[in-house]
Amino acid sequence: MMRLPPFSYRPARSVAEAIALLAEHGLDAMPVSAGTDLYANMKQRLFTPKVLVGLRPIRELRFIDFDEGRGLEIGALSTLTDIARNDAIRAKYPALAEAAGAVSTPQLRNMGTIGGNVCVDTRCNYYNQNLDWRKALGYCMKKDGDICRVAPSSPKCVAVNSSDTAPVLIAFGASARIDGPSGVTTVPFADFYRDDGIRAWAIRPGEIITRIHVPKPAPGTRSAYLKLRLRNSFDFPIVGVAAMVATDDRGLCRDARVVVNAVGSRPVVVDGAAKALIGTHLEASALDEAAEAAFAAAKPLDNTSATIPYRKRMVRVYARRALERIAS
Protein backbone atom coordinates (compact mmCIF):
# COMPACT_ATOMS: atom_id res chain seq x y z
CA MET A 1 0.00 0.00 0.00
CA MET A 2 1.21 3.50 -0.77
CA ARG A 3 1.68 5.22 2.57
CA LEU A 4 2.44 8.71 3.73
CA PRO A 5 5.91 9.45 5.04
CA PRO A 6 5.91 10.15 8.79
CA PHE A 7 5.00 13.67 9.92
CA SER A 8 3.43 15.41 12.89
CA TYR A 9 0.02 16.91 12.49
CA ARG A 10 -0.79 20.29 14.03
CA PRO A 11 -4.38 21.39 13.64
CA ALA A 12 -4.98 25.13 13.34
CA ARG A 13 -8.24 26.38 14.73
CA SER A 14 -7.90 29.92 13.43
CA VAL A 15 -6.05 31.73 10.69
CA ALA A 16 -3.83 33.33 13.32
CA GLU A 17 -2.97 29.94 14.78
CA ALA A 18 -2.19 28.59 11.32
CA ILE A 19 0.18 31.49 10.60
CA ALA A 20 1.81 31.03 14.00
CA LEU A 21 2.27 27.30 13.53
CA LEU A 22 3.73 27.78 10.08
CA ALA A 23 6.10 30.41 11.45
CA GLU A 24 7.09 28.14 14.32
CA HIS A 25 8.08 25.24 12.08
CA GLY A 26 9.43 27.24 9.18
CA LEU A 27 10.41 25.26 6.09
CA ASP A 28 9.73 21.96 7.88
CA ALA A 29 6.02 22.68 7.73
CA MET A 30 3.43 22.78 5.01
CA PRO A 31 -0.15 23.95 5.30
CA VAL A 32 -2.80 21.51 4.15
CA SER A 33 -6.53 21.79 3.70
CA ALA A 34 -8.10 18.62 2.30
CA GLY A 35 -4.76 17.33 1.08
CA THR A 36 -6.17 15.50 -1.91
CA ASP A 37 -3.30 16.77 -4.03
CA LEU A 38 -0.62 17.00 -1.35
CA TYR A 39 -1.15 13.57 0.20
CA ALA A 40 -0.96 11.85 -3.17
CA ASN A 41 2.26 13.73 -3.85
CA MET A 42 3.60 12.88 -0.41
CA LYS A 43 2.92 9.20 -1.05
CA GLN A 44 5.15 9.53 -4.08
CA ARG A 45 7.71 11.27 -1.87
CA LEU A 46 7.47 14.50 -3.84
CA PHE A 47 7.06 16.25 -0.50
CA THR A 48 8.20 15.02 2.89
CA PRO A 49 7.26 17.76 5.35
CA LYS A 50 8.06 17.08 8.99
CA VAL A 51 4.98 18.96 10.12
CA LEU A 52 1.60 19.41 8.51
CA VAL A 53 -0.45 22.35 9.67
CA GLY A 54 -4.05 21.31 9.20
CA LEU A 55 -6.31 24.15 8.08
CA ARG A 56 -9.53 22.14 7.99
CA PRO A 57 -10.47 22.92 11.59
CA ILE A 58 -10.73 26.64 10.68
CA ARG A 59 -14.47 26.36 10.27
CA GLU A 60 -15.04 30.00 9.47
CA LEU A 61 -13.16 29.65 6.19
CA ARG A 62 -15.90 27.49 4.73
CA PHE A 63 -18.50 29.94 3.43
CA ILE A 64 -19.87 31.37 0.22
CA ASP A 65 -21.41 34.86 0.28
CA PHE A 66 -22.85 36.65 -2.67
CA ASP A 67 -23.86 40.26 -2.46
CA GLU A 68 -25.23 42.25 -5.39
CA GLY A 69 -23.00 45.13 -4.40
CA ARG A 70 -19.74 43.50 -3.36
CA GLY A 71 -19.83 40.43 -5.49
CA LEU A 72 -18.76 36.96 -4.43
CA GLU A 73 -16.70 36.09 -1.38
CA ILE A 74 -15.58 32.48 -0.97
CA GLY A 75 -13.82 31.05 2.05
CA ALA A 76 -10.78 29.10 0.94
CA LEU A 77 -12.00 25.96 2.71
CA SER A 78 -15.23 25.81 0.73
CA THR A 79 -15.29 22.50 -1.07
CA LEU A 80 -15.56 22.19 -4.81
CA THR A 81 -18.93 20.53 -4.25
CA ASP A 82 -20.05 23.58 -2.25
CA ILE A 83 -19.11 25.79 -5.18
CA ALA A 84 -20.52 23.59 -7.93
CA ARG A 85 -23.87 23.44 -6.14
CA ASN A 86 -24.14 27.01 -4.92
CA ASP A 87 -27.17 28.72 -6.44
CA ALA A 88 -25.67 32.19 -6.62
CA ILE A 89 -22.53 30.91 -8.31
CA ARG A 90 -24.53 28.84 -10.75
CA ALA A 91 -26.59 31.88 -11.63
CA LYS A 92 -23.97 34.61 -11.69
CA TYR A 93 -20.71 32.80 -12.39
CA PRO A 94 -21.75 29.64 -14.25
CA ALA A 95 -18.22 29.01 -15.54
CA LEU A 96 -16.98 28.76 -11.97
CA ALA A 97 -19.66 26.23 -11.05
CA GLU A 98 -18.83 24.29 -14.22
CA ALA A 99 -15.11 24.32 -13.49
CA ALA A 100 -15.54 23.26 -9.87
CA GLY A 101 -17.96 20.54 -10.96
CA ALA A 102 -15.51 19.31 -13.59
CA VAL A 103 -12.70 18.63 -11.14
CA SER A 104 -11.82 14.96 -10.80
CA THR A 105 -14.59 12.94 -9.12
CA PRO A 106 -17.52 13.45 -6.75
CA GLN A 107 -15.54 12.15 -3.78
CA LEU A 108 -12.60 14.42 -4.49
CA ARG A 109 -14.89 17.40 -4.98
CA ASN A 110 -16.50 16.60 -1.63
CA MET A 111 -13.05 16.75 -0.08
CA GLY A 112 -11.06 19.22 -2.15
CA THR A 113 -11.27 22.93 -1.42
CA ILE A 114 -11.15 25.96 -3.67
CA GLY A 115 -8.06 27.16 -1.82
CA GLY A 116 -6.40 23.85 -2.62
CA ASN A 117 -7.54 23.81 -6.22
CA VAL A 118 -6.09 27.20 -7.07
CA CYS A 119 -2.79 26.03 -5.55
CA VAL A 120 -2.82 22.54 -7.03
CA ASP A 121 0.77 21.52 -7.70
CA THR A 122 1.83 21.78 -11.32
CA ARG A 123 1.82 18.42 -13.03
CA CYS A 124 4.07 16.56 -15.43
CA ASN A 125 4.19 12.91 -16.33
CA TYR A 126 7.90 12.87 -15.57
CA TYR A 127 7.19 14.28 -12.11
CA ASN A 128 3.96 12.72 -10.85
CA GLN A 129 5.54 9.32 -10.41
CA ASN A 130 6.65 7.13 -7.53
CA LEU A 131 10.09 7.61 -6.03
CA ASP A 132 11.58 4.48 -7.63
CA TRP A 133 10.21 5.48 -11.04
CA ARG A 134 11.87 8.89 -10.76
CA LYS A 135 15.02 7.27 -9.50
CA ALA A 136 15.09 5.05 -12.60
CA LEU A 137 14.68 8.14 -14.77
CA GLY A 138 17.39 10.06 -12.93
CA TYR A 139 14.92 12.60 -11.46
CA CYS A 140 13.97 15.98 -12.89
CA MET A 141 14.54 19.58 -11.86
CA LYS A 142 11.21 19.89 -10.07
CA LYS A 143 12.27 17.26 -7.57
CA ASP A 144 15.72 15.92 -6.76
CA GLY A 145 17.21 16.46 -10.22
CA ASP A 146 18.69 19.26 -12.24
CA ILE A 147 17.34 19.05 -15.75
CA CYS A 148 13.92 19.25 -17.27
CA ARG A 149 13.04 15.89 -18.83
CA VAL A 150 10.42 17.42 -21.09
CA ALA A 151 12.62 20.13 -22.52
CA PRO A 152 16.22 19.29 -21.54
CA SER A 153 17.53 22.65 -22.65
CA SER A 154 14.91 24.58 -20.68
CA PRO A 155 16.32 26.62 -17.82
CA LYS A 156 13.02 26.31 -15.97
CA CYS A 157 10.52 23.63 -15.13
CA VAL A 158 7.62 23.36 -17.58
CA ALA A 159 5.18 21.39 -15.42
CA VAL A 160 1.57 22.20 -16.22
CA ASN A 161 -0.93 24.21 -14.24
CA SER A 162 -3.86 21.80 -14.08
CA SER A 163 -6.33 23.77 -12.03
CA ASP A 164 -9.82 23.88 -13.48
CA THR A 165 -10.88 26.87 -11.42
CA ALA A 166 -7.80 29.06 -11.97
CA PRO A 167 -8.57 30.15 -15.56
CA VAL A 168 -12.15 30.90 -14.62
CA LEU A 169 -11.15 33.04 -11.66
CA ILE A 170 -8.74 34.94 -13.87
CA ALA A 171 -11.47 35.45 -16.45
CA PHE A 172 -13.75 36.88 -13.76
CA GLY A 173 -11.02 39.18 -12.45
CA ALA A 174 -10.99 37.44 -9.07
CA SER A 175 -8.36 37.94 -6.41
CA ALA A 176 -6.97 35.96 -3.51
CA ARG A 177 -6.64 37.22 0.02
CA ILE A 178 -3.39 35.93 1.40
CA ASP A 179 -2.69 35.91 5.11
CA GLY A 180 0.88 35.68 6.32
CA PRO A 181 3.24 36.60 9.10
CA SER A 182 3.60 40.12 7.74
CA GLY A 183 -0.11 40.73 7.35
CA VAL A 184 -2.69 40.49 4.64
CA THR A 185 -2.26 41.03 0.93
CA THR A 186 -4.64 40.78 -1.96
CA VAL A 187 -3.37 39.36 -5.24
CA PRO A 188 -5.39 39.25 -8.43
CA PHE A 189 -5.35 35.72 -9.85
CA ALA A 190 -4.11 37.24 -13.10
CA ASP A 191 -0.87 37.96 -11.21
CA PHE A 192 -0.91 34.91 -8.96
CA TYR A 193 0.55 32.41 -11.41
CA ARG A 194 4.07 32.38 -12.79
CA ASP A 195 5.57 30.85 -15.84
CA ASP A 196 7.69 28.48 -13.79
CA GLY A 197 6.59 24.97 -12.92
CA ILE A 198 8.42 25.02 -9.60
CA ARG A 199 7.75 28.51 -8.23
CA ALA A 200 4.36 28.62 -9.85
CA TRP A 201 2.45 30.75 -7.34
CA ALA A 202 2.91 34.21 -5.89
CA ILE A 203 2.75 32.96 -2.35
CA ARG A 204 5.59 32.65 0.14
CA PRO A 205 6.26 29.94 2.67
CA GLY A 206 4.26 30.68 5.80
CA GLU A 207 1.39 32.28 3.89
CA ILE A 208 -2.02 30.85 3.14
CA ILE A 209 -4.91 31.80 0.90
CA THR A 210 -7.89 32.48 3.13
CA ARG A 211 -10.52 34.01 0.87
CA ILE A 212 -11.29 34.50 -2.75
CA HIS A 213 -13.09 37.58 -3.97
CA VAL A 214 -14.85 37.60 -7.32
CA PRO A 215 -16.12 41.02 -8.45
CA LYS A 216 -19.73 41.53 -9.24
CA PRO A 217 -20.23 40.61 -12.89
CA ALA A 218 -21.08 43.48 -15.20
CA PRO A 219 -24.61 43.39 -16.57
CA GLY A 220 -24.87 41.08 -19.55
CA THR A 221 -22.01 38.87 -18.47
CA ARG A 222 -21.99 35.29 -19.67
CA SER A 223 -19.34 32.69 -19.07
CA ALA A 224 -18.39 29.12 -19.87
CA TYR A 225 -15.67 26.63 -19.02
CA LEU A 226 -14.81 23.76 -21.32
CA LYS A 227 -12.39 21.03 -20.39
CA LEU A 228 -10.62 18.57 -22.65
CA ARG A 229 -9.89 15.25 -21.03
CA LEU A 230 -9.77 11.70 -22.29
CA ARG A 231 -12.36 10.37 -19.85
CA ASN A 232 -15.47 12.04 -18.54
CA SER A 233 -14.34 11.75 -14.93
CA PHE A 234 -11.15 11.58 -12.87
CA ASP A 235 -8.93 13.34 -15.40
CA PHE A 236 -7.14 16.62 -15.02
CA PRO A 237 -7.67 18.98 -17.94
CA ILE A 238 -5.26 18.65 -20.84
CA VAL A 239 -6.80 21.82 -22.20
CA GLY A 240 -9.10 24.05 -20.19
CA VAL A 241 -10.76 27.10 -21.68
CA ALA A 242 -12.54 29.72 -19.60
CA ALA A 243 -14.43 32.41 -21.45
CA MET A 244 -16.24 35.44 -20.11
CA VAL A 245 -18.06 37.93 -22.27
CA ALA A 246 -20.13 40.97 -21.29
CA THR A 247 -22.51 42.43 -23.83
CA ASP A 248 -24.71 45.47 -23.63
CA ASP A 249 -28.41 45.50 -24.39
CA ARG A 250 -27.66 45.88 -28.08
CA GLY A 251 -25.64 42.68 -28.00
CA LEU A 252 -22.40 44.60 -28.40
CA CYS A 253 -19.48 42.94 -26.68
CA ARG A 254 -18.07 45.41 -24.16
CA ASP A 255 -15.73 43.15 -22.29
CA ALA A 256 -14.27 39.71 -22.91
CA ARG A 257 -11.67 37.45 -21.49
CA VAL A 258 -10.46 34.09 -22.72
CA VAL A 259 -8.07 32.14 -20.53
CA VAL A 260 -6.53 28.84 -21.54
CA ASN A 261 -5.09 26.47 -18.98
CA ALA A 262 -3.27 23.14 -18.85
CA VAL A 263 -1.02 24.13 -21.74
CA GLY A 264 1.74 25.70 -19.67
CA SER A 265 2.93 26.41 -16.15
CA ARG A 266 0.42 29.19 -15.77
CA PRO A 267 -2.97 29.95 -17.28
CA VAL A 268 -2.62 31.90 -20.52
CA VAL A 269 -4.68 35.04 -20.78
CA VAL A 270 -5.40 35.41 -24.48
CA ASP A 271 -5.37 39.15 -25.08
CA GLY A 272 -5.83 38.65 -28.78
CA ALA A 273 -9.10 36.87 -28.14
CA ALA A 274 -10.44 39.73 -26.06
CA LYS A 275 -9.41 42.14 -28.80
CA ALA A 276 -11.12 40.02 -31.39
CA LEU A 277 -14.38 40.02 -29.47
CA ILE A 278 -14.72 43.47 -27.93
CA GLY A 279 -16.70 45.77 -30.10
CA THR A 280 -18.32 42.99 -32.10
CA HIS A 281 -21.73 41.42 -31.91
CA LEU A 282 -20.05 38.04 -31.41
CA GLU A 283 -20.43 37.13 -35.02
CA ALA A 284 -19.03 33.81 -36.17
CA SER A 285 -16.01 35.50 -37.68
CA ALA A 286 -15.21 37.21 -34.37
CA LEU A 287 -15.41 33.88 -32.58
CA ASP A 288 -13.13 32.34 -35.21
CA GLU A 289 -10.63 35.12 -34.77
CA ALA A 290 -10.70 34.77 -30.99
CA ALA A 291 -10.29 31.00 -31.24
CA GLU A 292 -7.38 31.51 -33.59
CA ALA A 293 -5.76 33.84 -31.07
CA ALA A 294 -6.17 31.22 -28.34
CA PHE A 295 -4.63 28.64 -30.63
CA ALA A 296 -1.66 30.87 -31.31
CA ALA A 297 -1.15 31.62 -27.63
CA ALA A 298 -1.18 28.01 -26.45
CA LYS A 299 2.16 26.26 -26.35
CA PRO A 300 1.62 22.81 -24.87
CA LEU A 301 4.55 20.48 -24.27
CA ASP A 302 4.77 16.72 -24.10
CA ASN A 303 4.05 16.18 -20.42
CA THR A 304 0.38 15.23 -20.15
CA SER A 305 -1.90 12.75 -21.88
CA ALA A 306 -2.34 13.20 -25.65
CA THR A 307 0.15 14.88 -27.94
CA ILE A 308 1.32 18.44 -28.48
CA PRO A 309 -0.32 18.93 -31.90
CA TYR A 310 -3.59 17.45 -30.72
CA ARG A 311 -3.82 19.59 -27.61
CA LYS A 312 -2.85 22.69 -29.52
CA ARG A 313 -5.43 21.99 -32.20
CA MET A 314 -8.06 21.41 -29.52
CA VAL A 315 -7.41 24.82 -27.98
CA ARG A 316 -8.91 26.38 -31.08
CA VAL A 317 -11.90 24.03 -31.08
CA TYR A 318 -12.57 24.39 -27.37
CA ALA A 319 -12.16 28.16 -27.38
CA ARG A 320 -14.53 28.44 -30.29
CA ARG A 321 -17.06 26.14 -28.62
CA ALA A 322 -16.89 27.95 -25.31
CA LEU A 323 -17.55 31.23 -27.11
CA GLU A 324 -20.32 29.71 -29.19
CA ARG A 325 -22.02 28.56 -26.05
CA ILE A 326 -21.86 32.06 -24.67
CA ALA A 327 -22.95 33.69 -27.91
CA SER A 328 -25.91 31.41 -28.49
Partner: peptide, 10 residues
Protein backbone atom coordinates in the same frame (compact mmCIF):
# COMPACT_ATOMS: atom_id res chain seq x y z
CA UNK B 1 -6.99 33.87 -41.09
CA UNK B 2 -10.70 34.62 -40.91
CA UNK B 3 -12.05 37.72 -42.61
CA UNK B 4 -12.08 40.85 -40.50
CA UNK B 5 -15.10 41.38 -38.30
CA UNK B 6 -16.82 44.77 -38.13
CA UNK B 7 -15.95 46.35 -34.82
CA UNK B 8 -17.38 49.23 -32.78
CA UNK B 9 -15.24 51.20 -30.38
CA UNK B 10 -15.88 50.33 -26.73
Amino acid sequence: APPATPREPV
